[in-house]
Amino acid sequence: MTTLIIIVAAIFTNNILLASFLGMCSFLACSAKIETALGLGAAVIFVMTCTTAINYGIYYGVLVENAPLLKTDLTYLQFIIFIAVIAAFVQFVEMFVERFSPALYHALGIFLPLITVNCAILGASLFMIIRRYSLAQSVGFGFGGGVGWALAITLMAGLRQKMGYSHIPKPFQGVAIIMIITGVMAMAFMGFAGMVSIQ
């Protein structure tokens, strides 16, 4: 039950993009078309779900003090280890996408390797530690966070496609108007605040 609540909360009330503003760089760069946004969103869901699970195992199996595999306290290594795990995993996804969907691979271009430094993914792993989630909760949070991120970028892509017909004043063109739209989206998502709560 708590896992389900965490998934819903990660999608709506604590949307990793619209409430914590993590993962903005690829959100700004890759939201011009709905197809690209969906592809990148799916990749993020997959990577986030898997990396939280792997990082959970590494953190509680090796890094913490008196862990089953290593008695020393190595938690200060969590950042570098988490990033290494994410980078390795993204390499795997990249090879997989290139093999099975070359079109998507070319559409995503440089941004697929950039998932490595997508702060939302590292953020999910770190939140999992800070909030002391169990394994099921962590995977749920990773999955929900990914879905929330994919939802936000898809909605943004739709709005940007519609805005192709707009006559936006020059100073607001480009990234500026996207930031403003993100702000209004965050305002609307505030409506879910308190619906379900995670720490």
């Binding site: 709905i34 909605l155 496609q161 209004v184």
Partner: peptide
Amino acid sequence: LGNIAAPV
């Protein structure tokens, strides 16, 4: 929220 989802 509906406005945001409308284009999609």
